[in-house]
Every structure is written in structure tokens, then in C-alpha cells.
Amino acid sequence: MVDRKIEILVGMFVALGLGALFLLAMQVSNLSQIQEHGTYRVTAYFDNIGGLKVRAPVTASGVRVGRVAEIGYDRSTFRARVVLALGTQYDFFPVDTSASIYTAGLLGEQYIALDPGAEEETLKDGSVIQYTQSAMILEQLIGRFLVELTSKK
């Protein structure tokens, strides 16, 4: 009957390990949150994306509606091309929606905020967002501030 005891203990060990894996997946990671079960892709061109990273969140009024899927540099417009993967349940953004790059907190991560427009037509897979606002670059702000300071004299 020793074998039976061993079998039970091994079974418990395996169950415990698998349970731990499950816990890691569900409680410690973002698997329980939005899953990319269905997304559609929208492109936006920015003059400067600052420190935006792939997988950065895309939000509308603070609610996460998607992620940054791809970042590239467009050879004809000389601007940054950012592809956004938005959840298919959020398929109601008007075509004149604008995208801005903001920073969460003073030094936090950068994310894209969508501001819905007023058109009837909605963004589809492959659409291009017309109105964009670049990231604020701290150095540029300081530079502008310094120029203003010195020009007043």
C-alpha cells in the first residue's frame, strides 16, 4: 500500500504545481483582463511619438480599448506610423476621432488617448486616423520656455 500513498502524494504535487501555474496565469498576469480575441487595426501618423512603446495602452476617456500593435517610420511622409489594435467591441469610433500621445503621471509610461469626433461613419480595419497630436517632449518645452525668457529682454 506504500505505492498507493506515493501515487496520492505525487498526484497532489502535480495538482499543486498546475494550480500554481493557473494562479500565475489568472491572478498574477493580465490574462483575465482584455484578451485580444478580436481586434481591428487602425493606423495613425505622428510627428513625434516620444517614448511610446509597442503594447502601450490605447484609451478613450481613460478606459482601455486597445494596444499599440506596431511602430514604424513612414518613408514617404517622414512621420512615425503607429498601428493601433482596438478591441472589436469598441467599433463605434467616428472617422474624425483624434489620437494624442500622453504620459501617465509626470514620468510614467506613454499611452495613446482617443478623442471621439462627430462623424456618422466609424473607423474600420485599415482606417487612418487623421487628427493626431504628438508626444510632449520635455526638452522642446524647456527650449521654448528658455527662448521666451531670453526674447523678453
Binding site: L24, Q27, V28, L31
Partner: peptide, 19 residues
């Protein structure tokens, strides 16, 4: 504590790579 973990730890990039 928990919500930050869930927001920042990615299943594929972090947990799966660890496994």
C-alpha cells in the same frame, strides 16, 4: 498591489517566458 500586478505583468511576455 494586485491590480498593479495584473496591469503590468503580461501573460505571454512574462509568465510564459518564465515557464
Amino acid at each position: 498591489f494586485w491590480s498593479q500586478i495584473q496591469a503590468q505583468v503580461d501573460f505571454r511576455d512574462d509568465v510564459l517566458n518564465g515557464v
